[in-house]
Simulated assay, not measured.
Amino acid sequence: MTEGEYFEDFEEISLTELKEIGLTNVPENISIQIFENNFPQCYLTRAGNQLSIRIEEHIYTKYWFHKYHASVFANAMIKAIKRLTIEGIPFSDEEIDEEDEVHIFVRWTLNENSDIEFEKFIENINTAFDIVFERANSMLENSDSILILGKDTGEGLELLKRIQSHLENLGFYTYIIKEQPDIIGESVMQKVLRFGLSSRYVIIENSEPTGHLYEFPHITKFAELTSIVLQRKGEGATWMFEDLYHKLNSIKKFEYTNETLEEQINQGIDWADNYLKEFGNYQKENLPWMKKK
Rank of each mutant, 00 (worst) to 15 (best):
D182E: 08
Q267M: 02
S143D: 01
T127D: 14
Q164D: 14
N169I: 13
E158D: 02
K247C: 15
E186V: 09
L160T: 11
D130M: 13
E259K: 07
H166M: 13
N126D: 11
Q164H: 11
K233R: 15
E259F: 06
V202P: 01
K247F: 06
P217I: 05
E255Y: 09
K247G: 04
A237C: 06
L160Q: 03
P181K: 13
K253L: 06
P217V: 05
F172S: 11
K221G: 03
G156S: 04
N258I: 06
D144Q: 10
S145H: 12
H166L: 03
L167P: 09
K247I: 15
F129C: 03
I131T: 15
G171R: 14
N266I: 02
I176Y: 01
S250G: 11
Q267T: 01
F129M: 08
T210L: 07
F129N: 12
Q180I: 14
T153L: 09
M240I: 04
N169Q: 13
I203M: 04
S198P: 11
R162N: 13
K253M: 13
L170Y: 14
L213E: 01
Y173E: 08
I204K: 05
E215F: 00
V188Y: 10
E134R: 11
I146R: 10
L170R: 10
F241K: 04
H246E: 07
M139Y: 14
K178V: 14
T257V: 03
H218E: 05
S227Q: 06
G150H: 00
S145T: 07
G185F: 10
L149I: 06
L230H: 09
M240F: 00
H166T: 12
R200F: 04
H218W: 07
E235D: 04
D243V: 11
P181G: 06
T127P: 06
F172A: 09
F222C: 14
S250L: 11
G171W: 12
S138I: 03
V192M: 02
G236P: 05
V132C: 08
M240K: 00
E168D: 13
V132M: 03
N169R: 15
E224M: 12
K247H: 12
I148D: 00
E158F: 12
A136F: 08
K221R: 15
